[in-house]
Amino acid sequence: MAAPVVWLVEGAGGGPGTQEVRACGRALGGDSRVALLEEERVGPYSPGLYAEALRVLISRESGGEPAAPTVVLLPHTYQSAEYAPGLALRLGAAYIASVGSAMVNDGGGLRFGRAILQGRLRAEVRPKRRVVVATVQIGGFGGGEPVESPEQVFEVGRPADIERHRERETLGREAAGVGGVDLPGAERIVTAGRGVGGPDEVSVAADLASALDAELGASRPVVDNGWLPREHQVGSSGHVVAPNLYVALGVSGSIQHLMGMSGSRIIVAINKDPEAPIFSVAHYGIVADLHDVAPALTRLLKAGRSS
């Protein structure tokens, strides 16, 4: 079976996820080329416009019925994961979101690995169509080693009827929360997860953070439940952090959370569920009730400091 043709969708100057997309493309081997998607040429972003612009380029270069399997890779960002399913539909392609591994097996078939059930299990997925659109999980591919861009670059052009595909109007941008918490700059972070139990029990994490001279982080459920304000949120939808020390208290470790903190130097997880996905990235794990261990840690740290 012919090696796949692999399209790497990149923005101007890279952008988030570019390295992961290149690393995924390299894992698939084959003939890689860049689809360079720049706002100056295509126009201001909307899902329909970008899906259409890429469809035009890829179907033109594939010459109708592609001879080799074709894979279109995009980073799983807030922009490209919004329009990638529509692109798949327009190309008659299979769609696989947020892949963490990719390979071509002995028979030439494509296989993609992805987390399911919020990271509790991994699935190996086989596309049933000749063309595949996949988004690549950020922070989950490559391992940091820089990958060169392929030499072949195709510029994505402006679709003929731009107004028809620009189906929404951007009115502006705003900050989601208020300031006062410096998670990205923190050397140490203690994060409260759903396992802390409730708004009145967040103090167990705050006390440990104070004993460690750390910033206080929160997982998404903690913020969604209103136990801590949104500026504390760690994860792909909050702050992406990489401190020297990251202590996760009662955090199960959804894939979005792991994407936001797995680059930390030392990760400590305290959770009573031994199956919690957070343990898959932890350097030190304690399977126990955080309400016993965290106060003990706080006491020992304070005693150590005063002695």
């Binding site: 190996e124 086989r126 030190y284 794990g285």
Partner: peptide, 23 residues
């Protein structure tokens, strides 16, 4: 109509040599 098929599911790979503390 499905474009994909799940071939296998498995537990995620264990952490890279994480230390489990059992006090």
């Amino acid at each position: 109509g499905a474009g994909t098929e799940t071939e296998a599911v498995a537990l995620p790979p264990a952490g890279a040599g994480g230390v489990v503390i059992e006090g």
